[in-house]
C-alpha cells in the first residue's frame, strides 16, 4: 500500500516546522552528534535511519529537550520550532514538551487505568473544562490511535494489562491527547510483532494529516513505507537527508548506499 513513497515538494527552510542548525551534542567526553543541520517539514513524516549508536535517538531527544534530564548531556547549536529557539533561556521545557509529544521504544503506559493514561496530559495542562469535555478528548485520542473499538468497554481496566501493540497505541493516544504539533517516535515498533507493527504504521500514516511526525527506525522498509523524508545518520554525522524515494533509490553518498544495501550497519 505504501510501497511507492509519496514524493512531495521540497520543504524549504522557510516553512519547516523544526529547523536545526549546527547541533552538537556531548555526553560527558563523547561527541555524540556532530554538526547536524536539518529541516523537518510540517504535516509530513520524517524518518531517521542509521546503524545503532549513530546518534539518531539522541538527536530526536534534542527536539523536545528530553536530554535535559540527563546530567552529563550538553547540547549546542540552534533548534528552532516555528522560528523560536527551543534552547533559549526563557523557554520552559515543560511547555515545549506539551507542543512536541513523544512515543518511546518500549510501550510505557502508567500503572493507571486506560482512561487515566489518556487523560493524564489534558489534566496536567488543564485542557478540559468538564468531565464530559475530558471524556470527549479521551475518546477522540483513542480513536485517532485506532484503539477506541478495542478498549471502549474497559476504559477503567489498567493500561498495563493491554497487549504490547495495544499498549503502544495507548501511548500514542496519550501523546496525541495533549494536541501536540510535533510527534517524536523513538523506534515505536521495535518491541512489537509484525501485526502490531502494521497497525502502528497505518496509524502513523494517518497521523501525518495533523502532526509533523519524526520517527527513528531500524527498519529501512518501514522508513520507505511511511516517510516522505529520510535522514541517514552515521557516527554522529548527518550523512544524507532528502526525499525518501530518492534516498532509497538513488543515494548520493557512498555510505548511505552501503547502509541501505546492507554492507555497513
Amino acid at each position: 500500500m505504501y510501497d511507492t513513497p509519496l514524493t512531495e515538494a521540497d520543504v524549504s527552510t522557510e516553512d519547516a516546522k523544526i529547523l536545526a542548525r549546527n547541533v552538537q551534542v556531548h555526553y560527558g567526553t563523547t561527541h555524540a552528534i556532530k554538526d547536524v543541520s536539518v529541516a523537518i517539514g510540517d504535516k509530513a513524516v520524517t524518518a531517521f535511519i542509521g546503524p545503532s549508536g549513530c546518534g539518531k535517538s539522541t538527536f530526536l531527544r534534542c527536539l523536545n529537550r528530553m536530554n535535559d534530564t540527563i546530567d552529563a548531556c550538553r547540547v549546542r547549536g540552534t533548534i528552532l520550532l516555528d522560528g523560536d529557539d527551543i534552547y533559549h533561556r526563557r523557554v520552559d521545557p515543560v511547555q515545549l514538551r506539551a507542543r512536541v509529544g513523544m512515543v518511546f521504544q518500549k510501550p510505557n503506559p502508567f500503572p493507571k487505568s486506560v482512561y487515566d493514561n489518556v487523560a493524564y496530559g489534558p489534566r496536567i495542562h488543564g485542557l478540559a473544562n468538564s468531565r464530559a469535555d475530558l471524556d470527549r478528548i479521551v475518546e477522540k485520542s483513542l480513536r485517532r490511535a485506532a484503539l477506541w473499538e478495542e478498549v471502549k468497554d474497559r476504559l477503567s481496566a489498567p493500561g498495563t494489562g493491554l497487549s504490547g501493540g495495544q499498549q503502544q497505541r495507548l501511548c500514542i493516544a496519550r501523546a496525541v491527547a495533549t494536541e501536540p504539533e510535533v510527534l517524536l517516535m523513538d523506534e515505536p515498533c521495535s518491541a512489537l510483532d509484525p501485526i502490531a507493527t502494521a497497525q502502528i504504521e497505518d496509524l502513523i500514516y494517518e497521523l501525518r494529516d495533523r502532526f509533523s511526525v519524526v520517527i527513528v527506525t531500524h527498519s529501512m522498509q518501514q522508513a520507505a513505507r511511511i516517510s516522505q523524508k529520510t535522514a541517514f545518520f552515521h557516527l554522529g554525522h548527518l550523512v544524507e537527508f532528502g526525499e525518501t524515494g530518492q534516498i532509497f533509490t538513488n543515494p548520493q553518498d557512498p555510505r548511505t548506499e552501503s547502509y541501505i544495501t546492507g554492507r555497513i550497519g
Partner: peptide, 12 residues
C-alpha cells in the same frame, strides 16, 4: 521509562 513518559507529556 515511566518518568520519561510523563515528562515527555509536559508534566513537571
Amino acid at each position: 521509562t515511566l518518568r520519561d513518559g510523563s515528562l515527555s507529556l509536559g508534566a513537571t
